[in-house]
């Protein structure tokens, strides 16, 4: 019997082997390559040269747009993840109620998430277009405004629009994560709380929030990664213009690599981004796990 158990010990590892191989080839290997590249000289045409230590990192942080891009990236992640989490939570609460047409409402919610981000960003570009955008058309036809408004009058406004589109496409993901958490809550808990005289806010704070926390954790951590790495919205709407004022780290390093042809600093920036994400996700996960372990 013991001999059989000993033999079977390796069986789980065999089953895990394909996944481990895939992760090694498609995740770990590219990460290691990028790390190696970030310490190498890379020519304008892409030829990889000698080891140059931290020179690419020094060049990257001394780029004129570096500070602007980091500040933009901070606001981009905080606003899109923060606001979409709040809105997604509210939407999930609404969709968890029993009402006529709930299934249709849930289906519609998937659309912004299921549509390609490039298409979403292009559509929003048309909606807010000054000359013949549909937003101006609708407002003009309803008589709400007398003349067309330039919805992209400054780069700050354009950046806010980009964040808005980011929030629009992220809300459904949060809503579905939270909804799955809400549906797993035993209804008798609410009944008991109601009998004890608990109101809406009381139940929300003491039953709903603690029980959907795992779902919220998953959605927040994944969103931080997705939003930080999101490329299509900013690239499609402004390409970082004017003069990198609306760039985030990902669009900036792409422009740096393939437009400015500064591939070394671009690779260093991508490593910096990877490390920032590791730290953010790690700190968040640790703090949440600690709270979950609290009695």
């Amino acid at each position: 019997m013991n001999a059989l158990q000993g033999k079977r010990k390796w069986v789980p590892y065999v089953w895990l082997l394909p996944s481990a191989l895939l992760i090694a080839v498609f995740v770990i290997f590219p990460i290691l390559i990028v790390f190696k590249l970030s310490f190498s000289e890379i020519s304008k045409a892409g030829v990889i040269g000698d080891f140059i230590g931290f020179q690419n990192y020094i060049d990257a942080v001394h780029l004129p747009a570096f500070k602007t891009v980091m500040v933009n990236t901070f606001w981009w992640v905080i606003s899109v993840v923060g606001i979409s989490t709040l809105l997604g939570f509210i939407v999930a609460l609404v969709l968890n109620q029993k009402f006529h047409g709930r299934k249709i409402a849930r289906s519609i919610l998937v659309f912004p998430w299921a549509t390609s981000l490039v298409i979403q960003a292009s559509v929003w570009n048309y909606i807010i277009k000054y000359e013949y955008g549909s937003l101006n058309n609708v407002l003009l036809n309803l008589g709400i405004i007398n003349q067309a408004i330039n919805w992209r009058s400054s780069y700050t406004v354009e950046f806010i629009w980009e964040c808005g589109v980011g929030i629009f496409v992220t809300v459904p993901f949060v809503a579905f994560c939270v909804l799955s958490g809400l549906q797993s809550i035993d209804g008798s808990l609410y009944e008991a709380a109601t009998v004890d005289g608990a109101g809406f806010w009381n139940k929300l704070w003491n039953i709903t929030l603690p029980l959907v926390r795992p779902s919220l954790t998953v959605s927040t951590v994944l969103n931080i990664i997705y939003v930080f790495n999101s490329f299509p919205i900013v690239y499609t709407m402004t390409k970082g213009a004017p003069a990198n004022k609306t760039d985030t780290m990902i669009t900036y390093l792409y422009m740096l690599s393939f437009y400015d042809r500064k591939k070394g600093p671009a690779t260093a920036l991508s490593v910096i981004g990877f490390l920032i994400l590791c730290v953010c996700a790690g700190v968040y996960m640790l703090s949440v796990m600690r709270k979950e372990e609290e009695p």
Partner: peptide, 19 residues
């Protein structure tokens, strides 16, 4: 040329924002 091309674009765009 790559540097000049991107440089003049950045200069124009910065000037558009008041530089």
């Amino acid at each position: 040329w790559d540097q000049v091309k991107q440089g003049v674009i950045a200069a124009e765009q910065s000037a558009l924002t008041g530089a």
